[in-house]
């Protein structure tokens, strides 16, 4: 059986909010190492991959592999009943028809309990090759969101060009062009404001802004975002979850090719 307790319901609320624009139904795969999720959007352009490690929960127990097939809009309805600071416990039997969610307020003596019906989802798992990316950029997540939203006013696509000079996000559309260039800099007092660029060779790729803006719904989950690029392979956009236990929310986006 699965029994996992999260100190803050907010984490699951935000994860589900961040991915529900891309995916309708998906399996939450539970095993002794934690809860994982991998799903592609309908058009096969973007993929979301989440890992919530057992260490993110206290306690966490899952004796065997359990797939929880969940409709995300139904889960969103149930999670609306959880206050952000509630303690959230997920429970399921070994071959479950439902997942049980309990929300507890630490201040008030209130316990809310919901059973969400599960569905059979026949989902193929994709192998994501370990990639040595040519460039990786670590930057404030709110800055990345701002850039994507601003450039979406200009065009539906953005080119991301990374050289040793910095990273340039550029868009060209009917009304004109726009670009934002970030140079590497470290902020000692506020490390979350630093921009770090790790480059082995220059990269230039184009991506759909509609998807990138969708990914940035994860902004409130982490102060930093990491973009990893290599020419002609999908972009990896990664948010670290719940501080230092290697839990993550990753998005992959297929590039636009040929101009």
């Amino acid at each position: 059986m699965l029994e996992s307790r999260l100190e803050q319901a907010d984490l699951l609320k935000k994860v589900v909010e961040a991915i529900s624009g891309l995916v309708n139904d998906c399996n939450f795969d539970c095993n002794d190492s934690g809860i994982a999720l991998q799903a592609m959007d309908n058009s096969h352009v973007a993929l979301v991959s989440m890992m919530l490690k057992a260490e993110a929960f206290s306690p966490y127990r899952c004796d065997r592999n359990i797939a929880l097939g969940i409709n995300l809009s139904s889960l969103t309805k149930v999670l609306r009943a959880a206050q952000s600071s509630d303690i959230l416990t997920l429970k399921a039997e070994d071959a479950p028809d439902v997942v049980n969610l309990v929300f507890e307020s630490s201040e008030k003596d209130r316990i809310s309990e919901y059973d969400l019906k599960l569905m059979d989802i026949d989902q193929e798992h994709l192998g994501i090759p370990e990639t040595e990316y040519a460039a990786s950029i670590s930057m404030p997540s709110n800055e990345f969101q701002r850039i994507c939203k601003d450039l979406m006013n200009i065009s539906e696509s953005v080119s991301i060009e990374c050289t040793k000079e910095g990273v340039k996000f550029a868009a060209a559309g009917d009304i004109g062009t726009g670009s934002v260039t970030l140079k590497q800099h470290s902020n000692v007092d506020k490390p979350e404001q630093s921009v770090e660029i790790d480059l082995s060779e220059p990269v230039a790729l184009s991506f759909s802004l509609k998807y990138l803006v969708n990914f940035t719904k994860a902004t409130s989950l982490a102060s930093k975002v990491k973009l990893s690029l290599s020419n002609e392979v999908p972009l990896l956009v990664e948010y670290e979850l719940s501080g230092g236990n290697s839990s993550y929310l990753r998005f992959y986006l297929a590039p636009k090719i040929g101009d």
């Binding site: 592609m40 096969h44 352009v45 993929l47 192998g127 297929a254 090719i257």
Partner: peptide, 14 residues
């Protein structure tokens, strides 16, 4: 104009 590629070409089913 640039064509949107699909992930299937990059990631194969396990």
């Amino acid at each position: 104009t640039a064509q949107q590629s699909r992930l299937d070409g990059f990631f194969k089913p396990k």
